[in-house]
Amino acid sequence: TLFEALYDYEARTEDDLSFHKGEKFQILNSSEGDWWEVRSLTTGETGYIPSPYLA
């Protein structure tokens, strides 16, 4: 399933992933509550992002 970022986000820890509004992601793991592990389709990087920032 693909999701798109609604807002920009700046990583706060080394496990987080910074991203920009409009960036698209593949969800790798959504079992961690509000923090999902994703792969950016723009950069190929993986990390955790806050799920409320996605649509």
Rank of each mutant, 00 (worst) to 15 (best):
F25Q: 00
S18Y: 05
G33Q: 09
A55T: 11
L54C: 09
W35H: 04
Q26R: 06
V38G: 02
Y9K: 07
A11C: 07
S30V: 10
E45R: 14
G22D: 02
S51D: 03
S40D: 03
E37S: 04
G44T: 01
A5Y: 02
R39E: 05
L54N: 08
W35A: 03
D8R: 15
L6N: 06
K24E: 03
E37N: 06
A11Q: 08
D34I: 11
L2K: 03
L41Q: 04
L28V: 06
L17G: 15
S18A: 06
I27M: 03
L6G: 05
L54T: 06
F3D: 14
D34V: 09
T42W: 15
T43G: 02
T13S: 12
D16R: 14
P52T: 15
G33R: 11
K21R: 09
W35F: 07
I49T: 01
L54Y: 07
E10G: 03
F19S: 02
W36S: 00
F19N: 00
E14K: 11
A5T: 04
A55C: 13
E32K: 12
G44S: 14
S40W: 04
E23L: 02
Q26W: 13
E32M: 13
K24H: 06
D15I: 13
L54K: 07
Y53T: 06
A11V: 14
T1M: 13
Y7M: 07
Y7K: 05
D34N: 07
R12K: 12
K24A: 05
E23V: 02
Y7W: 13
R12G: 07
R39S: 02
S40T: 13
R39V: 07
R39D: 00
E37D: 00
R39N: 01
L54D: 05
F25H: 00
E23T: 06
S30T: 12
Q26V: 14
E14M: 09
E45Q: 13
T13W: 13
Y48V: 06
G47R: 04
P52M: 15
A55G: 10
E14H: 11
I27G: 00
A11W: 15
G44Y: 04
G33E: 11
E4D: 04
L54H: 07
N29M: 05
P50R: 11
Y7T: 05
Q26F: 14
T1P: 11
E45H: 10
Y53C: 13
S18F: 06
D8N: 07
L17Y: 04
S18H: 07
A5G: 01
F3P: 01
K21Q: 06
L28H: 01
E10S: 09
I49E: 00
S51A: 14
D16S: 14
T42Q: 09
K21W: 04
N29S: 13
S31M: 10
S30C: 12
T43Q: 02
E10H: 09
Y53L: 10
W35I: 08
N29L: 04
W36T: 02
I27T: 03
G47I: 06
R12Y: 07
S31W: 09
D34P: 07
T13C: 15
I49D: 01
P52H: 15
F25N: 00
E10Q: 13
Q26G: 01
H20P: 04
L41N: 04
A5P: 02
G44D: 02
Q26C: 09
T43L: 00
G22H: 03
D15A: 12
E10F: 12
I27V: 12
L6I: 08
K21P: 03
L6V: 06
N29D: 10
E23N: 15
E10T: 11
Q26N: 03
E23P: 01
T43D: 01
L28K: 13
T1N: 11
F3R: 08
T1Q: 12
D34G: 14
S30I: 11
E37I: 12
G22I: 01
Y7G: 04
Y9C: 07
Y53D: 05
D15V: 12
R12L: 10
T42V: 09
G22R: 02
E10D: 14
G22V: 02
L41T: 06
V38F: 15
S51N: 14
P50Y: 15
F19L: 03
S51V: 08
E45T: 14
A5V: 04
F3E: 01
P50E: 04
K24C: 11
E37C: 14
T46P: 00
F3M: 07
I49P: 00
A11Y: 03
Q26L: 13
W36I: 06
E37T: 12
L17N: 00
E45A: 12
E14F: 11
D16L: 12
E37F: 15
E45K: 14
R39I: 07
N29I: 13
S30K: 11
S18V: 06
E14W: 08
F3S: 01
G33M: 08
P50N: 08
D16K: 13
D15W: 15
S31I: 08
Y48C: 09
N29Y: 05
E32H: 13
E32V: 10
D8H: 05
S31L: 09
F19T: 03
Y9E: 00
Y53M: 09
E14C: 11
E32Y: 12
L2R: 04
S31D: 10
S40Q: 05
L17F: 12
P50K: 09
K21S: 05
D8A: 05
Q26M: 12
E32N: 14
D16Y: 13
A5S: 04
Y53R: 05
E23D: 14
K24R: 10
E4M: 11
H20Q: 09
R12W: 13
K24W: 15
G47Y: 07
E10V: 13
E45Y: 08
H20N: 08
G33H: 10
G44R: 00
S30D: 12
T13V: 08
F3Q: 02
S51M: 05
E4Y: 15
L6D: 07
F19R: 01
H20S: 10
G47S: 15
T43E: 01
V38E: 00
I49W: 02
L41I: 08
L2G: 12
